[in-house]
Design a protein around this nucleic acid. Structure first.
Lengths: 249, 249
DNA sequence: CGGGGCTTTGATGTTCATCAATGTCTGTGG
DNA sequence: CCACAGACATTGATGAACATCAAAGCCCCG
């Protein structure tokens, strides 16, 4: 069996971080950059399908996604799974566990991923020395809250057709922003869609088929190709975000 | 028509804040207390049923609930409503709007409420001067995220019976912690329950009737009386929180 | 006494879950 | 090269869960 996670001692310095070049992200000041550089302890490479973090664990680390993507989820005792959100480049992973001690959800990789590793014990010194960064972290937590509010609205009150449309547009938009998908293709299974939206796999499949018959999308070899994003957005009542640059660590 | 909101210039100084006495909350240090006292600009009294904050607004304030309770919700264009969480004494309200500019949800009072009013323009100076308090705010945001993750699991993957059981135990536990309900009674309508759980009012009613027939609860004059919290918790797969003291502002 | 908010109930139909089977593709070992 | 298993997608049949519609009851308040 091959290793599913591999830690390396800071192979990529923050000065060369590819995220800093991306339009959506707020770039760093000199001394902030230098501090984050020291705050970062290394890189973690994770294989597709591997578990990054597990519910109930007391992990001494905190991460920023550098490349690839995954999802956060929770389980009921009998195995029912709810995907709670997706994590993409620039997203902070494990903050909740850092603050509250124990992870309340798990994270699994949907593709090969790499993550920056931070020491959660040093988080408070960041708060003391760089209030701007502390503010950024709260901003990031707040953005997560917004997304969760939206998901609740979707899962609770939208129809299956609206749900699928919403989810795919939501993911595609985020993926584009963080530089993941440039051809409108998303590599996830219908089971992931079902577990995000709170509907069964079979019903998900039939709902996707309805959207495909309208030529809004096409499902092909383990992924989804969005053909008409506007139509899906219209169906879902989805509106694009503000376009303001956002912080990251 | 009577006024639904009334602002008074700091009628209650933080030194006498009733929340500081409660077991669940972490108490303040001297200079922190003094700073928060200056950060607080006044008190807001809100009538039952009134809107505290409205989606889309740019509110210059940030609040902490002092007494009473309410709920956060979002609407779809056609009027479908999703209640996203409840707010109770000690909870921070409006943080998301403070950080991201525009409120992404509304808040309505379920009872007479009073709130501490803070100036969001001064939030960053709090981050600069009191990193401990900044850390606390992030902690609070993170706790909200946890609750939302749980709600998603409930709305997405639990059955109607489990949903109702979960919600009522969840609310009762929080209410007890923040000193709202001491006799196991919750003053909310079945419409609120329905809009929280993503099910219809009629089905909610019939599900509540099932729980009532098992003597787990009783619905009486516009409220719910929980008779057997353990049975509901068991049904819902609910487990009590850690019991660690939590911060507030 | 009438009206409005909330709850309750029954009837009916749709959405969705569940079950079961089949198809396709991919990788693996003989 | 073929046989095989495993992951994922697809399809049809059936029933349960849930939504919707409609009406009636209760209670408080003006």
């Amino acid at each position: 069996m091959t290793k599913e996670q591999e830690f390396t001692h800071k192979s990529l310095p923050c000065q060369q971080c590819p995220l800093r070049k991306r339009e959506v992200f707020r770039d760093f000041e000199g001394d902030e950059l230098e501090f984050v550089g020291r705050f970062k302890k290394g890189d973690l490479a994770v294989k597709k399908g591997a578990t990054v973090l597990v519910e109930g664990a007391h992990n001494p680390h905190l991460y920023t996604v550098l490349s690839g993507w995954g999802f956060r989820y929770k389980l009921l005792e009998d195995g029912r799974r709810q995907i709670v959100n997706y994590v993409m480049p620039g997203d902070l992973v494990g903050l909740q566990g850092s603050l509250m001690g124990e992870m309340k959800h798990s994270v699994e990789a949907l593709s090969q991923m790499s993550l920056c590793v931070f020491e959660k014990a040093e988080l408070f010194s960041l708060y003391k020395k760089f209030p701007e960064l502390a503010y950024d972290i709260t901003w990031i937590a707040s953005r997560e809250e917004c997304m969760l509010d939206d998901h609740l609205l979707t899962v609770g009150r939208r129809t299956a057709l609206e749900k699928v449309a919403y989810l795919l547009v939501f993911i595609l938009d985020r993926a584009r922003q963080s530089g993941l998908s440039r051809n409108g293709t998303l590599a996830l299974t219908q089971q992931h869609v079902a577990d995000t939206l709170g509907i069964s796999l079979v019903h998900t499949n039939k709902t996707i088929a309805r959207l495909a018959s309208r030529n809004h999308l096409k499902w092909e070899d383990g992924g989804c190709k969005i053909l008409n994003q506007e139509a899906l957005a219209e169906l879902a009542g989805w509106t694009p975000g503000s376009g303001v640059k956002r912080p990251f660590l």
